[in-house]
Simulated assay, not measured.
Amino acid sequence: MKKVGISSNNLLHPNAHFGTNYVDYIQKNYIDGIIDASALPMVFPIGSPSLAKEYINSVDALILAGGQDVSPEYFGEDPHVNLHETDQDRDAFEVALVLEAIQQDKPILGICRGLQIINVALGGTLYQDLNSQYQNLVVKHNQYPTKWYIPTHRLILKRESWLSNLFDKEALVNSFHHQAVKKLANGLQIDAVSSDNVVEAFSDEIRHIYAVQWHPEMLLMKNPDAQKLFNLFVEKI
């Protein structure tokens, strides 16, 4: 059985259930998507970037999940006034995982923040806040309070790619983000955009990199077809 590493998130603030007993975690839907694709999920707790080599050694592929904003220090900008919470430890750890997975020639799937951290790790940049920085914004890219499993905006395929057999020419996806790709890193190719031309998916078949801006793991709650994306990724291992 193929083993898929998935980088975790962590609680950064006290809460009513855990208090200050901080935990690393990953949402169950990611785990379900991996298991239902006949692969074994291996959750990586956030740690030192020096551990990336051993973590990637232990798996056949890597998934990077959603979460906090990516710090603009990685693309040479000061924090924008509308930047949300960042996590320096997570950023550094996941950048190291991306670079090590490429070094070991192991496939990577990025989801939401995962797409963004891949782009930044490879030298790209981000809009820190679409609402105030993206001039052509006409689509609601954070659909809250609409439920996470409901697709809300169009996905426009830009070329023949790994997504071509998964989606119609203009499918619907869900959307929970306010950061997005600004400058695409060298070697990546845009596979899909929203109707206002925000990057929704990219890939690099040579380095086995695949990434989407929406949340297929959330769509799994009510849309069984969302499993096809996880299936396809595992088939590429």
Rank of each mutant, 00 (worst) to 15 (best):
K3D: 04
S7R: 07
H13F: 09
H13N: 14
P14S: 02
N15K: 08
N15I: 00
G19A: 04
Y22S: 08
Y22A: 03
D24N: 15
Q27H: 12
D32L: 10
G47D: 12
S48G: 00
S48R: 01
S50P: 00
K53N: 07
S58M: 11
I63E: 12
G66Y: 04
F75R: 02
G76L: 09
G76Q: 10
D78C: 08
P79I: 05
H80W: 03
L83P: 05
E85P: 02
L97N: 07
I102G: 02
I102F: 03
Q103H: 13
I108E: 08
I111S: 09
L115P: 11
I117M: 13
I118S: 07
V120I: 11
T125F: 03
Q128W: 07
N131D: 10
Q133W: 05
Y134F: 15
Y134V: 14
K147W: 05
L157H: 01
W162M: 06
N165P: 01
F167D: 11
F176D: 00
A180Q: 10
K183N: 13
L184Q: 14
I190H: 06
V199A: 07
S203W: 08
D204T: 06
H208P: 00
A211Y: 04
V212W: 08
Q213M: 11
W214D: 12
P216A: 12
M221I: 12
N223T: 04
